[in-house]
Amino acid sequence: MAEFLQLLFAGLTVGAVYALVALGFTLIFQASEVVNFAQGEFVMLGGMVTVFAFKAGVPLPLAALLAVLVAVAVGLSLHRFAIEPAKGATVVTLIIVTIGASIFIRGIAQIVFDKQFHALPAFSGDEPLRLLGAAILPQSLWVLGGAALVVVGLRLFMERTLFGAAVRATAANRLAAELVGIDTRRVLAFAFGVSAAIGALGGILVTPVTLTSYAVGTLLALKGFAAAMLGGIGNPVGAVLGGVLLGLLESFAAGWISSTYKDAVAFVVILLVLFALPQGLLGRRAIERV
């Protein structure tokens, strides 16, 4: 029971981060059908900028805010200088552009920061809480709570505000949205900005648990994408479910099957979903949409 709980909490914690990355993917994909492989770099930026600002003496909450702002700025520039100009390019071209951008961001990060791992102090101390023999970090609760807040907040925004309605309209039918006078370019820029902020937040919350370095983004992007696929790409609820499920699968696979092949879970899941269940768990028919 103790082991089960331990794995459950570990899985939920990473799963929450995957969910945030997957959510970022979904937002951008909905608005533009662009698969943004630089999504993981926002998580990296969130963690690294906070670490370095904090080391330079900035109080933690301000350092975190700064990190979110930096990530949003990078997200908006990514849209402005790489995605906008490549408008009309094929899907594959756009994928290569975002991969190139992610390598570029990482390359800059390793120069501006360094190549070491870094830690942040936990927000509410390092002493694990005991629950039926399992040790749960207070920081894990921060990650879970933060992720839940983001999901609920985004949902409210989409449903209650005019701009949210514009985003939803663009996602449903871009051409129609443009016809009724929605500035879809602004919608897409917005999607990049919000995705960046969500990713950065995930990075800030999880760094005290998992450490961060300039290179953490790649694997997170790939796993976040696997989560988005698992949930059915383009579906925000699916993205969150997919993320949590992937985190749990990984954790239990590591604990019960093989800890060395933990990272393989996400990619086996991608291939299985693509071959057997192309719509994902909650997806619409997506496979023929190119």
Partner: peptide, 30 residues
């Protein structure tokens, strides 16, 4: 690897009285 808790969980269950970590650089900090 940035997370070794599954491995440590198994050590916890094995009844070990001490843990020895063979590695260098940043892995041991994790």
């Amino acid at each position: 690897d940035t997370d070794t808790t599954p491995q440590l969980n198994k050590i916890k269950a094995s009844g070990a009285q001490a843990i020895v970590n063979a590695d260098f650089g940043q892995g041991p900090a994790i």
